[in-house]
């Protein structure tokens, strides 16, 4: 029987083979990802229902967001997904010598795994920096959710800031659905409520992902991964791709609905 004492070091005692361990980990991860899909689904359901009810609010709301920053963030996240996939590939190739296929070995090995993970981390950080600027701008101007809409820095003085008035004017003018010049849809409150919950939860996922990547990077640095064993890299990358997937939907739905 294969027990902990009989297998490789990385094989946990209750598994019989590395393959069993790998497949169990993968299946667990995919089930977890399915859970994530349903977690975000509630937000999308709310989004679509209110979009149907309050098209003007959604249209004007999307014009109040900075689509250039959104596009930048999309590109950054796609790049990070790419580097994450490359990191997994590098780990899968491993440091073993004598693999004949040269192409297969390109960008492979522990060193490259580390580089790609670091790059992923940097892109994730860049995403958060852009997000930070977007958020602070909104706090400053007062494009805030619910009852705080129009309250710059959450301080409700009863006056909209001039910047917000300007932004609203521009947004209403360019929005496809609008009720007429200078008419602000009341339900912008709900739009920004959803905007902040959606991007906020996504942002928390990004932060968790950054933590995981750092953790994996450190493990990789210690040389814990090889061509035989790289499941953690694989699973963290899967998680990271999911974060990317969510953003792929959030970006057009929030920024680009016209």
């Amino acid at each position: 029987m294969a027990h902990a004492h009989h297998g490789p070091d990385y094989l946990a005692h209750h598994f019989d083979t590395p393959k069993q361990q790998y497949e169990a980990a993968k299946i667990g991860m995919w089930i977890f990802l399915a859970q994530e899909v349903l977690f975000f689904s509630g937000l999308f359901v709310a989004y679509f229902i209110f979009r149907k009810w309050y098209p003007e609010a959604w249209s004007v709301g999307s014009h109040l967001l900075n689509w250039k920053m959104g596009t930048l963030n999309t590109a950054v996240l796609l790049l990070s997904s790419f580097t994450a996939a490359m990191a997994v590939r590098a780990a899968q190739i491993g440091d073993q010598k004598g693999v004949p296929d040269k192409d297969k070995r390109k960008f492979g090995g522990q060193a490259w795994t580390g580089h790609f993970l670091l790059l992923t981390f940097v892109f994730a950080g860049a995403f958060m920096v852009v997000k930070y600027f977007e958020y602070t701008h909104k706090f400053h101007v007062g494009t805030l959710p619910g009852q705080y809409f129009g309250c710059a820095n959450f301080e409700c003085t009863g006056t909209m800031s001039e910047e917000l008035v300007e932004e609203l004017r521009a947004a209403i003018a360019s929005a496809h659905h609008n009720a007429g010049p200078d008419l602000v849809p009341y339900h912008l409150r709900s739009f920004f409520g959803l905007y902040f919950v959606m991007t906020g939860l996504h942002g928390i996922h990004v932060l968790i992902g950054m933590g995981l990547i750092a953790w994996i990077w450190n493990k990789n640095r210690k040389g814990e991964f090889s061509a035989e064993y790289n499941t953690p890299v694989d699973n963290v990358a899967l998680y990271w791709h999911l974060v990317d997937l969510v953003w792929i939907y959030l970006f057009p739905l929030l920024y680009l609905i016209d």
Binding site: K19, K104, E228, D234
Partner: peptide
Amino acid sequence: DYYVHAHITPARTYVLVLATLL
């Protein structure tokens, strides 16, 4: 059946995928 045999995708494919996504 003992060890894991992962499928390794060529780097070129990944670059292509990234380009498509962008």
